[in-house]
Design a protein around this nucleic acid. Sequence first.
DNA 1: ATTGTTAATGAAAATGATTTTCATTATCAT
DNA 2: ATGATAATGAAAATCATTTTCATTAACAAT
Lengths: 155, 155
Amino acid sequence: MPGPKRWRHRFREQVCRWTMPREAILDLLSRTSKHMSPKEIYGEIQKSYPGIGLTTVYRTLDLLVRSGVINRFSFGDGQSRYEFKEGRKQSQHYHLICTQCGRIFDYSDFVEEELAIVRKTEAILAKKYNFMVQDHNIEFYGLCDQCQSQNERRS
Amino acid sequence: MPGPKRWRHRFREQVCRWTMPREAILDLLSRTSKHMSPKEIYGEIQKSYPGIGLTTVYRTLDLLVRSGVINRFSFGDGQSRYEFKEGRKQSQHYHLICTQCGRIFDYSDFVEEELAIVRKTEAILAKKYNFMVQDHNIEFYGLCDQCQSQNERRS
DNA sequence: ATTGTTAATGAAAATGATTTTCATTATCAT
DNA sequence: ATGATAATGAAAATCATTTTCATTAACAAT
């Protein structure tokens, strides 16, 4: 379903109007594989919706997170980053964060095995601590390929 | 080794002087099991070192992170949080974050099994993506015991 | 298609965490 | 005890995010 109201149906339940900025931001996030910050999203959206306010970007991102359509992450670089949440199981993935250049990579190897352990842990946490798990996150910090070779050249 | 220079020896290698604020901050972090923010640390340190500046707290925390003595975390509440890094293997743990009250809990159940999977994943990541893992992080988001019962009472 | 209600927007100001600047102070090698 | 200079603290600057409020636009009712 292409066109300006592509995502509208997802929000029937919500008490809200479906507007151009919302369509534009969700559309952008659904296309990119990057983990964009509000400012990056703002810059990109200018092209399809000039005159949009940064405030609206923030508000829309909040709405989309609350609606469960996107995920918010804090990778420790001082700004939040957002990711479209696919419904498909195969889209399960975790993140590699380069501590030098800040780039973020997705990986989905071993996710099945990791999920098995995670489920097991969740059950224990629920029983032992009475903690109701809603979501989980696994991330690796280190040096990406490029930064490693860059460092070699330098030394 | 108690006393005002308790931690000094850890920094022989670093090109730096060992000062009262540094001692006080590291001492505090080594004692607490909380995951404190700069402002919380600042408030607490006032008691043992009145007149300390918030700036110095920030600078010292940076130093300690760079020195590998403490860990920095972003749990998504808009401020960074710090944790003393124990050397012992048994101190390996991950975090439960309550999405309602923001409290953070440590857990160390299943850590052995999780570490096994993590090691396996690290090996693949190194080979397939040439990503050099330095550190990793696992966290669960959800509702803590207290917030769950609070919600029940309300509804 | 037009209209009225009001949710959503955008600009500017406010907030809050963190960083920078710079004159002063205190550590520690000598 | 002393001097070089690393570390400090106060204030200002920066940067992400939130709030305020007057204006605009979505859409239900006509």
